[in-house]
């Protein structure tokens, strides 16, 4: 598929806020702007002081964290939805709606950042699968009807050469 858009089933998601000097921050690690798969959980350092855990193990992983100091967790499973855009034209699809540079050097696999896509504020994670370009888009779930429509419209251009 040149570019496919799929709305992922609700998967557990946790937001962890932690200052640099906390145990939780040390435990989560990662550089700001990057993501890493750890077992069944994708750990994303989406902001300098915020990590998002995605996947079946997210809640468990969050529960294990030592939240001493200035750290907190919020279950955002229901607050944010996830859409995955995959395919050789995944980046082209997003480039129709998002001002970010999807070039390999600027947003390599594992890059994570916040951006606006078609007017919806998203956290974007480059999460290639099997060597195929793929992006996870986390966004406020109330936009889902609108957002899916817009993404599918954008991807439509690339569906013929799938």
């Amino acid at each position: 598929m040149a570019s496919s858009v799929s709305h992922l089933d609700p998967m557990p998601k946790v937001s962890i806020r932690a200052a640099d000097d906390t145990v939780a921050a040390q435990a989560l690690g990662l550089a700001f702007g990057s993501a890493e798969q750890r077992d069944d959980t994708l750990v994303v350092r989406i902001r300098p002081d915020e990590w998002i855990l995605l996947g079946t193990g997210a809640l468990a992983l969050a529960a294990e964290l030592d939240l001493s100091g200035y750290a907190s967790t919020v279950d955002i499973t229901h607050a944010r939805h996830v859409i995955r855009v995959t395919g050789t034209h995944a980046a082209d699809t997003l480039a129709k709606l998002c001002s970010a540079d999807f070039d390999e050097a600027m947003t390599p696999n594992g890059a994570a950042w916040g951006n606006s896509i078609a007017g919806v504020t998203c956290d974007i994670v480059r999460d290639d699968h099997g060597g195929e370009r793929s992006y996870l888009l986390l966004f406020d779930g109330s936009f889902v009807a609108y957002f899916l429509g817009v993404l599918e419209d954008a991807a439509g251009e690339f569906s013929s050469d799938s």
Partner: peptide, 12 residues
């Protein structure tokens, strides 16, 4: 001040 703010409008 130590306060974390997380929007939950849609989550709830």
């Amino acid at each position: 001040w130590r306060v974390h703010v997380t929007p939950l409008t849609t989550g709830l």
